[in-house]
Amino acid sequence: MTLAIETEGLTRLFDGRAAVEGLALSVPEGAFYGFLGPNGAGKSTTIKMLTGLLAPTSGRAQVLGTDLAHDPLSVKRRVGVVPDGLALFERLSGAEQLRIHGQLYGLERREAGRRADELLGALELADDAGKLVSEYSHGMRKKLALGCALIHGPRLLFLDEPFEGIDAVAVSGIRRLLQDLVARGALTIFLTSHVLEVVERIVTHVGIIREGRLAAQGTLAEVRGELTLEEVFIRTVGDERGEVPGLSWLGEGT
């Protein structure tokens, strides 16, 4: 089995505290990998390390067969990223954004333009292609960011919370597009999300991180067993909250 991502003892400390510790990920090529964990578990830190944005304190990461520490640019050329906070230029139109993004990855202007038009159509943004991104809704921005991550034809796609803050119709559209791409064997997807129902429907592999350490990893069937993904997730990360204290004044009107 060829691995798209393989890490060994990947660790990142911030002020002496481990955000990620001894991470050993194995993401097979062609997998739709859901990387789950509660807030602050280290998901975004992991993505930053795997995309060359953050140097690990120790450990090793191979992405698409290349050691990240040795050749981060080669990795960047072959991966696409939709970061948590998105990475869009607000004063460019959607069409300009996609084309220039493609050119920054080394595409010829004409080819980048052609792909941009196709992506605008596929992402149902063609009618708003001439608007500046500052005028886009959150869902449109997410779609555009996905287009930017796809325009250079990456072999591996990192998506940090792609379904956060968008409506069910947009979620469905993005989900179908991603599933289609994986089904065609076109790419591997590494995704973080809190929307477990959606994740359960689309991923083939799962990894669960808790307090910076990998708590579970494998195919969806292996990790889930007889339970739902949400049940497994809650058991793995622990649900230690008791009754909600106080707030008795809520509902008594103002």
Binding site: A116, A129, L132
Partner: peptide, 21 residues
Amino acid sequence: APRAAATGGGGWPLPGRLGAL
């Protein structure tokens, strides 16, 4: 709602990544 280029075609004919930048 200011508008700008609505298609991927066109753009400035500048070569390479530095041109796009």
